[in-house]
Design a binder for these strands. Structure first.
Lengths: 173, 173
DNA sequence: TTGTTTGTTCAGCATGAGCCGAACAAACAG
DNA sequence: CTGTTTGTTCGGCTCATGCTGAACAAACAA
């Protein structure tokens, strides 16, 4: 731990990353680990992360596994041989968001739409004002949901630059 | 509680709404309350919601307050006079999303950007390789974040139809 | 071999959120 | 006024989650 005038400034930014991590459903420790790795001079091992973050070894082990699974950090394993594993941050966060979306949200939305479709099928056979109203209500819900789904799927297949350009372009009309 | 052949089908849809509510950071009970109101024949009072959902009165009171605050349901108060308050669902969910975003996420992101700017200012005065590297790293982060911010802000100022059309249009190039 | 370092797993503790029932306040009906 | 209905607030319970320390396994060094 060498003397470093930039440490204080960096600390503020890492705390900000911590808070953002929490907003997006990760733990504070996960944000801290990512932040430390982001500013590190190279990949860090678990003991080094323990030293830098102050968290227990077990916490670092769990957190690094989770962050690796969602692609926010990467294992630079077997570098220089040995058992020692090192972690490096993924700097393209948009890529991470897209990947997480594809794994979780997308699946959930498809399941929901399937439920709507099945409900509409079941109502097909029924007569009466009530079932007519239900059909309409569920069809409305399904349409809104499908719109969200379409929008998010399209967003996940483009870069932020492309999306911003597309919307700006359409605003010129 | 009259006999209703559509109840079974509706139940599946409400459960689906419950799960979606959880995904977006609300409680299961909040999803249930919204679902019941969505399919109700008119605004419901707290005792009626207790009857329909099975939750305790205190839970309904808390949940309706929260849903009202974020605009997912509305108080149809003082209808027919008296103290009895009734709740109706907001059917335009995109509107709700936009509103919640403006209140919470937007504020959080602006705060984060302010932190980045302050950090860059502080680093201005320092010399040396390390502070040069820090400046670059933080500038990268800030740029990514600003891109997200821009994108989301733009999304919040358009309808889903407009957004989908804009992206589809740009895909034709 | 024996000792050291690295990494994982697991039981236990603390904290926070959701929900409940009870107590309370407010409005109305008789 | 007394009793009933509606709505809010609060203490307490339960469950999930983050974090820890300790025990364990695996690789290396002596």
């Amino acid at each position: 731990m060498t003397s470093d005038e930039t440490a204080v400034v960096t600390e503020d930014v890492i705390e900000s990353i911590e808070r953002s991590a929490e907003v997006y459903g990760l733990s504070r420790s996960a944000g801290r680990v990512y932040g430390v790795l982001y500013f590190a001079d190279g990949p860090l091992s678990i003991p080094e992360l323990v030293e830098e973050t102050g968290y227990a070894k077990s916490t670092i082990s769990t957190v690094t596994r989770k962050l690796t699974r969602i692609g926010m950090i990467h294992r630079r394993s077997s570098q220089g041989g040995g058992r020692r594993v090192r972690f490096a941050p993924e700097s393209d966060l948009w890529f991470v968001v897209q990947d997480v979306f594809r794994q979780y949200v997308d699946r959930e939305m498809e399941l929901t739409q399937r439920t709507f479709e099945r409900a509409l099928d079941d109502l097909e056979d029924l007569d009466g004002d009530r079932s007519d109203r239900r059909r309409e209500q569920i069809a409305d819900l399904a349409e809104t949901y499908e719109q969200f789904q379409t929008l998010l799927t399209m967003a996940m297949n483009h870069s932020p630059e492309e999306l911003i350009a597309a919307i700006e372009q359409s605003d010129l009309d």
